[in-house]
Write a protein that binds this DNA or RNA. Structure first.
Length: 171
DNA sequence: TCAGTGATTAGG
DNA sequence: CTAATCACTGAG
């Protein structure tokens, strides 16, 4: 896997529908418990876009859990679901525009619950700044990737319109 | 198809 | 305080 350059703030402060399709193929770098760093190619993501998107957690407004989504892009939004899994999301867009990209899979670990369990990602990563953090960030290797699109998964409750938005992006 | 499992949230 | 909900996974 090629070395890369850490993505800067400008990458994340764009609209989520611009950021999300740019993430598959990028490299997630994370510091492990033993102090070493490991690199994983991002393979699948989904966009959650603002207070209008019925599938977005910010649809019901600002709560302690969703607070970070209202921050300027580049932070991590982490939440716990189904009593077992931590979900890893990257906040995007401008201040007060609640958006995030769910990381659904990385190379070797397809599935949002499996990747966080394997990489040891939990609530301690909530709010982490991908631009400045010393334990997690994303790199661009310069490689060009063909990204496929499809509807988001697991959001039946959001209604047909939001369920059918082609906001899942994968290699 | 379906249960496990517990943080988070709205509501009393 | 209570009860409902849930951006998932693995077993059958």
């Amino acid at each position: 896997m090629k070395e890369g350059i850490r993505l800067s703030k400008d990458f994340y402060t764009r609209d989520v529908l611009e950021v999300a399709p740019d993430l598959p193929g990028k490299i997630l770098v994370i510091k492990l418990e033993d102090g070493s760093f490991k690199r994983f190619k991002i393979t699948e993501v989904e966009a959650y876009r603002g207070s209008e998107d019925r599938a977005c957690h910010a649809f019901r407004g600002r709560t302690p859990r969703t607070e970070i989504m209202y921050h300027e892009g580049g932070r991590l939004y982490i939440y716990f679901i189904y009593g077992m899994y931590w979900m890893l999301n990257i906040v995007t867009g401008d201040n007060n525009i609640p958006q995030a990209v769910l990381i659904r899979g990385v190379d070797g670990y397809p599935g949002p619950g499996k990747l966080t369990k394997s990489l040891g990602i939990d609530k301690s990563f909530y709010g982490e700044d991908l631009v400045l953090s010393e334990k997690i960030w994303v790199e661009d290797t310069g490689s060009v990737h063909t990204v496929k699109v499809g509807p988001r998964i697991g959001i039946d409750y959001a209604g047909e319109y939001w369920k059918s938005r082609p906001w899942r992006y994968y290699l």
